[in-house]
Structure formats: structure tokens, C-alpha cells
Design a protein around this nucleic acid. Structure first.
Lengths: 151, 151
DNA sequence: TTAATTTCTAAACCTAACTTTAGGTCAAGG
DNA sequence: CCTTGACCTAAAGTTAGGTTTAGAAATTAA
């Protein structure tokens, strides 16, 4: 409730390590909603430090910003995650992570079977399994990722 | 040596599943170097099917196109990998993959230790370890990835 | 021989997640 | 009061890995 509860964007930047421009960008993406002081400058609560920390951690787990926004939006009153919220969320993050690890480990197993084979035959080689490709826009040939080109 | 050894870009596209535009793009990135017929059209060898297969597989291992180019460039005569080359290369790819898996597994271990904690304190939380961040341009706050912004 | 495919180049566009820039406003210290 | 330094917005730029488009030339099929 004290005056120092209200952080400027620069102060929040220092506390979280995020660039000021990144914080504004997250706002544009609907991840955080500060209010404004009479002069039009953004003012944040202390809880927003945790909110942004959550965003950064969730990114490490491979969530996109829209996905993170949804997780946050599902919290009652769109609040910053409490320890109780965090418990539920982290179980989901773990599933996310497990899947990524699993995919990579299968790839590794296949590689072990292929060392020395060198066939690189696309129809036959277990190493080339499009189903296992990490799905992401902007990386890797999209054609093979289920997004066929026009011609 | 027969005439059918010389593939057009469309034929190569069908054999590899890559879009024609992707093949041209790889050429611009120095991953493949076809010669031209009298009319100026690209002509490829059969070995180029394997070369592109290698590119696709290496991408799954998380190598960037410049990295793949270097691997290929290290081969004598910049040739397409033979089974012998492949053996050496695949041992390197495995190390690459092991590291990625290791990073994710450490993240998972930390998450397990944190479920129910919910502190989300950046200075203290093991979940927030910038060293473990996947390094990639265009994703994630660059500031924390060692690429400090101007202001 | 003509029509239909392919192919060619160069440049613009796409996504995600930001950063940079330009031109102006606000706030705090001396 | 005045000068910094922090902040504001909107738009454009960045990166990787491609795709799309436009207009022209080559090739193939009928």
C-alpha cells in the first residue's frame, strides 16, 4: 500500500532483468496490464515482478507468449500466480517438458542405431521421421511439417 | 553417367520432399551447388538427394544452416557425406543432442524440486537459470541471453 | 507448332519475439 | 527554473528459415 509499491517501468526492468522494450511488448501481447499515472506513465505492482518471472520461466519450458497468456488468463481474476496456482501450472509444464525430452531421446536412440549405417535414405531411415519434428513456425521446411506449399 | 543422373530442381524436390523454394534457398546459403544446363536451369546429381537428406536430418538435431554448411564444408572436396563421413559426423551430432537433453533434464529436475514452492524469485529460483536457456535468435529476451540492449 | 509446364531472378512477405529509431512529453534534482 | 534522465507512441528493423509474387525465358507434351 505504500508509495513504493508502485514501480515505474524502469524499476520493473531492473528487478526482472527484462529490457524496457520487452515489458512494453508483453503488454501489447496481453501478458501484463499496468495502469497509468496522471502523466500517462506505466505503474506496476510488486506482484508484477512475479508475473514477469513466471513469463520468463514458462518460456524456458517452450511455451509461446500466446500460450502463456492463456495460462495466466485462466487464473481467477487473471491474477499473478500464487504458490497454489503454481503447483497446478507446474504439473502441466512438466508434461510439456517430458514430451520434448521424449522426442529428443527417441531421436538419440535412432541415431545410435544409425551410426555407421549412413544410408540417409529418406523413405527408410528412422532418423528422418517428420512426426518427431519440433513444430515451430519460421524454422525447418514447413512442407514436411504439414503445411504444404502452393506448388 | 546416364542422362537420368541429372535431376531438375523439380525432380529433386519430389525426391526429397523439400519445396523448390527451399532448395533454392539452401543454395543461397551455400549448402548445395548445382551446375546449370545451357538454358540456365539447375541440374543436380543423385548424390544431392543424400546431401539434402543430411541437411534435413541435421536440422532435427538442432543445427542451424550455417552450422550444417560448416560440417559439409569440412568434408574433403566439400563432397556429400559418405557412410564413412557419416559415422564421424553422427558422433558429433550425438554430442549435440546429449547436451540438449541434458539441459532439459536439469530443467525438469529443478521443476520437480520447485513444485509447490512457487517462489518465482529470480535471484533464488533454480528454475530461472539463464545459462540453461536455449540460445536462439529471435526468441526469448536477448538481454538475458548475453546480448545486452543499448538502453 | 503451339500450348502447357517448369524454371529463372529479384524482391517482398511471413512468423515470433523483440529492439531500434524518431520525435515528443514527464518528472526529479540542483 | 531549467536541465537532465526516464518515459511515451508508432513504425520500422532484426533474426532464421523459408514462401510468395511477378514477369520473363526454357522445356516438354500434344
Amino acid at each position: 500500500m505504500a508509495v513504493r509499491e508502485r514501480l515505474s517501468i524502469g524499476a520493473l526492468s531492473k528487478r526482472t532483468g527484462l529490457a524496457v522494450s520487452a515489458i512494453r511488448y508483453y503488454e501489447a501481447q496481453g501478458l501484463i496490464s499496468p495502469w497509468r499515472n496522471p502523466g500517462g506513465q506505466r505503474r506496476y505492482q510488486r506482484a508484477d515482478i512475479r508475473r514477469l518471472s513466471f513469463v520468463m520461466i514458462a518460456q524456458q519450458f517452450g511455451l509461446t507468449l500466446p500460450e502463456i497468456r492463456e495460462v495466466l488468463a485462466d487464473l481467477p481474476g487473471n491474477r499473478t500466480p500464487t504458490p497454489q496456482d503454481w503447483k497446478k501450472i507446474s504439473i502441466n509444464l512438466r508434461a510439456h517438458l517430458d514430451q520434448r525430452i521424449d522426442t529428443l531421446m527417441r531421436l538419440r536412440d535412432n541415431l545410435d542405431g544409425c551410426i555407421g549405417c549412413g544410408c540417409l535414405s529418406l523413405p527408410k531411415c528412422a532418423l528422418y521421421n517428420p512426426d518427431d519434428r519440433a513444430k515451430s513456425y519460421g524454422s525447418g521446411p514447413r512442407y514436411l511439417m504439414g503445411d504444404a506449399p502452393k506448388t
